[in-house]
Design a protein around this nucleic acid. Structure first.
Lengths: 302, 302
DNA sequence: ATAATAGTGTCTTTCAGACAGTATAGT
DNA sequence: ACTATACTGTCTGAAAGACACTATTAT
């Protein structure tokens, strides 16, 4: 026998009588921070090209924030999950399939979008730039890659009764051939207070739309944190790469220089040697490596 | 001069004409996994009481899943953020303010709720059981604390073309004075595949409603991971505690025993001595400690 | 005295960081 | 020969893990 509710209805009866329209519903969207790593222009033929971390942005054609740059994304459709929505949007923007995609954080300030209540689930996506060459780009929208760099430019620590009030000012710099702009955000942490320990504010939105500066900063932090304990970085690498290239990618993401010998020791079990080498570079060729898929994330299972 | 969009409207004109009802909108809810740690019944007066990790569940009074247990939560209201919604629900359920609350993951399978499309943003919440004593509990709903334990009971690794297909079977056991039940879920990881690397399935829902088994597992994993690199554990501790108590909490969350001397070294800079001691316990008293709020999470800022 | 827990000292291994050294292509 | 990069060896010090030892209370 089927269980009944307090009104004595079966589940089928209950569902038939259920009024879907009784609550006010927010719009739900996805916003995707798509990163890739590309070589900058090279001047000296003997030197290795510098790499830069690049982010895909879309120029807004309509209000609000007309003319500003925004993360690709869009509204979720009734029959798809957020992952599927993000994947669909990404395909529309970059025309590339099977891209790394990971949910980040859901942003829900009631006033984050002046049009109406929009809750946005943000995603981190990583693409290897060699695959991206295929990408035709969408015609209707103006999409562009910007190199991003982030710097903490200020940190203030104030002692409170039970801990610390920490304000960090972060500057994100966006740059490409055509334009460049800076965005400044403040991350406020209440250490020792239990509720809502972290908050973000936009100090200077630059040419970025909505709260996308915060999303981008959150994405960069996630990427940075996951670098060492996951294999996430290989989503930014081509099939074959030299260890120096891999190190350069680590360096631009972490924002600091690493010592070669130590780096190689540390990543040695994440990669496999191949028989390929670079050549014609004006110096000693380097052996090419590939990702070692049998690398074990979870060493603690003994 | 104000910027215009492609139709030549100002932002004010655009917003006035904007039709909010043009898209189908999902319902958005929060689900909160509230954990606490409590002592079990003690038999031998000389022995220390065992501790257990407890989770708050609500008995469903209506379809769907009548009579099953669910995480506390509810729909988001138009003028509140998800954090505020979770906080409000939590206050309604536990009657405690200023509780640790952290966003976990947003679950969005189109069919996760048979009533209508519901997207749920899950939260992890931690309460110290000594504060919980104040909690009157809500009258209308039947809420109960269950001790939870999680075990990985099976792991299958299949080699694929580019990596591994890993299936992990996890059993969650729920238990209190009145009832107990098990839930089995499967976590499927596609290592080496870039898109959607992790998925969850319910093998045996037990007496848990919706996809809440997955949410609970996700919450436990997050808690486990954050134990060592954050100060999250102190949200589960009273103001004063002995290092043995702290170690017990670590042990029940991690599901393994730790070596005392090493544990004490490791957490030494997260805690502060006090002049208080336990007494009347039939053995040597232990010094009581408190959280050291000036512990620095970020050692890497040199 | 005994049971039960509190708390400390130290050895070993592992690993991160720093740095110096050797090797090899192209011009 | 020179430049620029590729690649390796090894020292140091910090931290993790394992284990043995001493200390102190209530009964």
């Amino acid at each position: 026998m089927k269980p009944l509710n307090h009104k004595g209805e079966t589940e089928a009866e209950f569902l038939a009588a259920y009024d879907v329209s009784q609550y006010i519903r927010p719009s739900v969207a996805t916003d995707i921070a798509v990163f890739t790593v590309r070589d900058r222009e090279n001047l000296d033929y003997r030197k290795l090209p510098e790499k830069s971390l690049q982010l895909l942005l879309i120029k807004r054609k309509d209000h609000p924030y007309v003319g500003c740059w925004a993360l690709p994304g869009g509204f979720v459709e009734p029959a798809e999950s957020l992952d599927q929505a993000a994947q669909r949007e990404l395909k529309e923007e970059t025309n590339v399939d099977n891209i790394y995609l990971e949910q980040l954080y859901t942003w829900s300030d009631p006033n984050r979008d002046p049009r109406t209540r929009v809750i946005s689930c943000s995603y981190l996506s990583l693409v290897d730039s060699s695959r991206l060459a295929i990408c035709g780009g969408d015609d209707a929208e103006e999409a562009a890659w910007f190199s991003v760099s982030s710097n903490m430019v200020e940190e203030n620590r104030l002692k409170t009764e039970n801990g610390w009030h920490v304000e960090k000012k972060i500057r994100l710099s966006f740059q490409n051939e055509i334009e460049s702009f800076d965005v400044e955000i403040v991350q406020i942490e209440e250490e020792g207070v239990k509720l809502n320990p972290v908050n973000w504010n936009i100090l200077n939105p630059g040419k970025l739309a909505f709260d996308h500066g915060q999303i981008i900063w959150y994405a960069i932090e996630r990427l940075r944190n996951k670098l060492d304990y996951t294999d996430i970085v290989f989503n930014l690498m081509p099939e074959l790469f030299s260890l120096t290239e891999l190190q350069q990618v680590y360096e631009i993401i972490l924002g600091k220089e690493l010592i070669k010998a130590n780096f190689r020791r540390k990543i040695s079990d994440k990669v496999q040697q191949t028989n390929h080498y670079t050549k014609d570079l004006g110096h000693r060729p380097s052996q090419l490596y590939k990702y070692n898929p049998s690398w074990n994330k979870h060493k603690d299972i003994l």
